[in-house]
């Protein structure tokens, strides 16, 4: 006998993992970490037209309550050490989006003496958003990709499998 036929239509059946992930992905709070040009586009992404809030992503000013860090802009060597410090202050599980060519790989400023070529030298990155700067639509797409990723994570596993599941 199938379970689906016995319960009323108002009830949804799902796995606990999926439920947890669905709640988590629907409230990804990102830390405002605007560094350079991309910060303006990030601000406009949160603005009235792109409205990132509708995906449950709202800006936070402090790393202590953030789930996501959007590194938007050129990361200088002077700033890189700070970035690491801020990332380490975020509670697990935490994610990072690298927004724009500069934080992806140094971009235009690979020639510079004071720029860290890519934020992935300092912190692990989940989603890279290309563009110089990426349009608000691109950042929104990046967030959706991250939400997909969050949705696929597995938490309720046997102890021995835990390491595997996280990896």
């Amino acid at each position: 006998m199938s379970l689906i036929n016995t319960v009323p239509e108002t009830v949804l059946t799902t796995k606990i993992d999926d439920l947890l992930n669905w709640t988590r992905k629907s409230s990804v709070w990102y830390m405002l970490f605007g560094l350079a040009c991309c910060a303006i586009e990030m601000m406009q992404t949160g603005g009235p037209r792109s409205d990132l809030d509708r995906f449950g992503a709202v800006p936070r000013a402090t790393p202590r309550v953030s789930d996501l860090i959007i590194v938007s802009g050129t990361l200088t060597l002077k700033m890189a050490l700070r970035t690491k410090l801020l990332y380490e202050q975020m509670p697990d599980p935490k994610y990072a989006i690298s927004m724009g060519s500069c934080s992806n790989c140094g971009g235009l400023f690979q020639l510079a003496y004071s720029v860290c070529d890519g934020v992935d030298k300092v912190i692990p990155v989940d989603v890279y958003v290309p563009g110089c700067p990426p349009r608000p639509e691109a950042l929104t797409e990046g967030l959706l990709k991250l939400q997909d990723r969050i949705q696929q994570e597995r938490w309720l596993v046997r102890k021995g499998d835990a390491a595997q599941a996280v990896a």
Partner: peptide, 22 residues
């Protein structure tokens, strides 16, 4: 750095300043 004979250091606090071509 703005001196003409300035050479960029290899790394700064453990962060390499070189990146291989993608």
């Amino acid at each position: 750095p703005l001196r003409k004979d300035f050479i960029e250091p290899e790394e700064y606090h453990g962060i390499s300043t070189r990146r291989e071509s993608l």
